[in-house]
Design a protein around this nucleic acid. Structure first.
Lengths: 120, 120
DNA sequence: AACAATACTGACGTTTTTGTCACTATAGGT
DNA sequence: ACCTATAGTGACAAAAACGTCAGTATTGTT
C-alpha cells in the first residue's frame, strides 16, 4: 500500500510517521504540547532553551502543515499566537511516552557502561 | 540530570533516545530485527530495498556502537555476518510499535484529507 | 586463471538540515 | 518621535546526513 503525500511516496505508515515526526525538535515540541496546551511560541522557547527561535518556528510550521498542530492567531498588539496539538497530533502520546521511557532506560544503561569502563 | 555520551551532552533520556534512534533507516532496521532475528546484511537489504547498502551498513555500525545491535562474524568464505538486537535494543519494541500504529492512523488521515480536497 | 558470493571500506559529491544574523510589523505608553 | 514586546521572515553559511561509485578480501569452484 503506497502512500502519496507532498510529492513523495511512502511504503508504510511507519515511513510516513517518521517523515512527519523526524525533525530535530519535533518530538520535543510535541512533548511540550502534550504536557501543557495551548502554548505561545515564547513559552515553547522557555521550555526548549537549546533550540533557537528560527528552528522552533520551522518545526512548528511543518507540524502545522501536516496538521499535527493547530495555530491560533489573535489580532492584538503585541501579537499573540497559540499552538495546540490537533486530534491526530494528540494521538502521538504513546509514541512520545514510549520514547521517553526507553530513553530513561538507555540513559541508565549508558551511565552504567561508563561507570564500568572507568574501572578498567 | 545531564547525560554525557560520545562527547555530547543530553538534557533528558528523550534527547538521548532520539540521537540513538534518529537515523534515516534505524527504526526500519530495528523493525526488521524485531520481526526476525538474527539477520544477515543481505537479508536486511531484501527487506529494505529502498535503502542502499552503504547506508544500511552505516546505520548498523552506529546501532552497534550504541550497543542496540550485536554483530556476529563467522570466519567462513564467503563471509557471513549476523545482526541481532541486544537486550536494550529489544526494549525498543513499544517505540516501534507505537510509531507503526500512529503511522497507520496518520496515513488514513492523510488519505482522507486528499480525498476531501479532490472533491472541492 | 578467472569467477563467484558476501560483507564490507574509501573517497567524493550532493542534498538536507540546522544555525545565525539582520530585519519587519504592530499599537500603546512615555 | 521613540521604545516596548511578540512573532515572525529572508538570505545566507555551516554542518550533518545521505547517496554513488569503485574497489578490497576471502577461498572454493569451473
Amino acid at each position: 500500500m503506497e502512500i502519496h503525500y507532498k510529492d513523495k511516496t511512502y511504503f508504510s505508515g511507519k515511513d510516513l510517521a517518521l517523515s512527519a515526526v523526524g525533525g530535530r525538535w519535533k518530538i520535543a515540541v510535541i512533548w511540550c504540547l502534550l504536557q501543557e496546551s495551548p502554548l505561545r511560541l515564547s513559552e515553547i522557547q522557555k521550555k526548549l532553551p537549546q533550540a533557537n527561535q528560527r528552528m522552533l518556528i520551522r518545526q512548528l510550521r511543518e507540524l502545522e502543515e501536516d496538521k499535527l498542530v493547530t495555530r491560533y492567531v489573535y489580532p492584538v498588539v503585541p501579537p499573540k499566537v497559540e499552538y495546540e496539538l490537533s486530534e491526530i497530533g494528540r494521538q502521538l502520546e504513546p509514541v512520545v511516552t514510549s520514547i521517553c521511557n526507553w530513553g530513561d532506560e538507555f540513559s541508565a544503561f549508558v551511565e552504567k557502561e561508563a561507570a564500568e569502563s572507568s574501572l578498567e
